[in-house]
């Protein structure tokens, strides 16, 4: 019951956020700011995680190929596929759910408890549209790009790990990563990243928007936003994989 009620409230809020937000001179300004904090603010951590992730996947692959019947370029092939299909979209989304989700929930939550949202409403501003829409739009634009970047770096992380440690020579790895490339897998992954981007920003905004109380509640709500968003991501990962890959 509570879940249904929450979900209904969430849908209503999204409806309000997407309704034509009056004359919002501020949309472009806000969007640029969000893209900056979301994109530029997350590039570093995503680069590091992706490089290491790719490196570990490649080493694990190499370590597990014992049969001489399996060619060593499989390491490159399997690393590329794991990174593209799963790791870059899902792992990056989970990382961003923690970083961006908690940030959004506490920012909007603070605006709620300090009555800044009331101040917007009293001026006749559609606060949902004003605050939430730029965040969702920025995420939809930026997170797929971050995902692509992560794929690229993940594959190269594997390359460096294998070649620098002497597990594999570089032509073999490159042979693997160019083998049987299916663009549809990229599309599948980018669709996932769009859905995840929407989940992260909308769930976090929803949690922050309806917080009541003080700074303690804002803290609790940002944790809850991260948990809610992460679970939704895992669930939709399953659903989308079933729908798009089979």
């Amino acid at each position: 019951m509570n879940y249904l009620e929450n979900f209904g409230q969430y849908c209503l809020l999204m409806f309000r956020a997407f309704r034509q937000p009056g004359r919002n001179r501020f949309f472009r300004e806000q969007l640029v700011r969000e893209i900056d904090s979301l994109g530029v603010g997350s590039v570093g951590i995503i680069a590091i995680i992706s490089l290491f992730m790719g490196a570990v996947i490649a080493i694990q692959m190499a370590a597990n190929i014992e049969s001489p019947l399996i060619p060593m370029y499989t390491v490159g092939y399997a690393t590329r596929e794991s990174v593209i299909l799963e790791f870059s979209s899902t792992v990056i989304a989970l990382i961003l759910a923690g970083k961006v989700g908690s940030n959004i929930a506490s920012e909007i939550g603070t605006m709620r408890v300090s009555e800044q949202i009331d101040a917007l409403e009293i001026m006749g501003v559609n606060s949902a549209g004003y605050l939430i829409l730029p965040k969702i739009t920025a995420a939809l634009l930026i997170i797929p790009i971050l995902t692509l970047m992560s794929m690229f770096l993940g594959v190269w992380g594997g390359f460096f790990a294998c070649t620098l440690t002497g597990l594999l020579d570089s032509p073999t790895y490159i042979q693997g990563i160019t083998l049987d490339f299916r663009p549809y897998h990229l599309v599948y992954s980018l669709i996932k990243s769009l859905v995840f981007a929407f989940i992260i920003t909308s769930v976090a905004s929803f949690r922050g928007y309806y917080v009541r109380g003080g700074s303690r509640e804002v803290g609790q709500t940002s944790t809850r936003a991260v948990v809610n968003a992460s679970i939704s991501i895992l669930l939709w990962n399953l659903i989308l994989t079933r729908l798009l890959l089979l």
Binding site: G22, R23, N24, R25, F26, M111, S114, E115, Q116, D118, A119, I122, M123, G124, V125
Partner: peptide, 26 residues
């Protein structure tokens, strides 16, 4: 016009931008 208990100023904006906000919006 309403003045809230804590002021409810938008903390991402300067004083001047806060005051200009309703004017720019409307």
């Amino acid at each position: 016009g309403m003045v809230f208990q804590g002021g409810a100023l938008f903390d991402s904006m300067t004083v001047e931008e806060n005051v200009a906000f309703p004017l720019r919006m409307f």
